[in-house]
Design a protein around this nucleic acid. Structure first.
Length: 254
DNA sequence: AAATTTGCCAACCGCGGCTAA
DNA sequence: ATTAGCCGCGGTTGGCAAATT
């Protein structure tokens, strides 16, 4: 099947967006939504292809985009999620509210990959790898706990996630807390798994950031880890294990 | 001060999945 | 079952700014 290029028609503008174009796009979407990206630029009077409009909206103009540098906790979460999910940036972005896949991808390539490389080169090369990056072009051992530059009470997410391993070959995921170890067979993590788990029990997602570090068991669906952070950043990190494991495990104390 | 290199980020490209005809 | 079109995703790149020589 032959596909016509997105911007085959001549006269469509490319490159950086101007403030005027941004304004037109935002106004249009606020009024009419974005049901059809293909038709949108024409209807809005923009000399752009729908793809370009979509990208601009998703990555920059969306009202729920979080601005500013990534916090240490966000970076740690990206590292661990990348360890679990590989280069599935959209899936990782879905776990980091306000961050886009493009942004996360950029941070990974410009900061985190380099940092991990430095860390692994200074740590023992003999440490066994348990990564899930089989789909990733950059299989790296990211199992080494990351030194945290922040204060100790930021530790919940980093410690929990650092203790979370997934052995792709054995299809086993292990959660280790101070007082517990829980293993579950885990055939595959894919997008439908995450979305189904989420839609099945939204109550596990904290609407507001809790004051205290919170560990929450969500029935058969999984766990939500809520870090206790001073800056009140909107962040949650949850791990869903496969449904149907039977009894509720004893809750660990983090 | 000028030239060159490096880092970063926004945006583009092309592929694959999904769906409607 | 096939085809065509749209959308979303991941990989890549162009261009700007900062850092270095």
């Amino acid at each position: 099947m032959v596909r016509a290029p997105c911007c085959e028609k001549m006269g469509l503008k490319k490159g950086p967006w101007t403030p005027e174009e941004d304004q037109i796009l935002v106004s249009f979407i606020q009024k009419y939504g974005h049901g059809n990206w293909r038709a949108l630029p024409k209807q809005a009077g923009l000399l752009r292809c729908g793809k370009s409009c979509r990208l601009r909206w998703i990555n920059y103009l969306r009202p729920d985009i979080k601005r500013g540098n990534f916090t240490r906790e966000e970076e740690e979460a990206i590292i661990k999620l990348h360890e679990m999910l590989g280069n599935r940036w959209s899936a990782i972005a879905a776990r980091l509210p306000g961050r886009t896949d493009n942004e996360i991808k950029n941070v990974w390539h410009t900061h985190l990959k380099k940092r991990l490389k430095d860390q692994t080169s200074t740590s023992s090369p003999a440490s066994s790898a348990s990564n899930v990056t089989s789909q990733s072009a950059e299989p790296e051992n990211m199992n080494s706990p990351q030194p945290s530059s922040s204060s100790s009470d930021v530790s919940s997410v980093t410690e929990v996630s650092a203790a979370l391993t997934h052995d792709n070959h054995q299809d086993m995921i292990t959660i280790k807390g101070e007082n517990m170890e829980l293993s579950e067979t885990f055939p595959e993590i894919d997008d439908s798994f995450w979305s189904e788990a989420l839609s099945a029990d939204n109550s596990s997602i904290p609407l507001e950031f809790p004051e205290a570090t919170n560990y929450q068991y969500s029935g058969e669906l999984g766990f939500t880890f809520c870090p206790n952070m001073d800056d009140g950043m909107e962040f949650w990190y949850d791990l869903f294990i496969r449904a149907g494991h039977g009894d509720t495990p004893e809750l660990p104390e983090f």
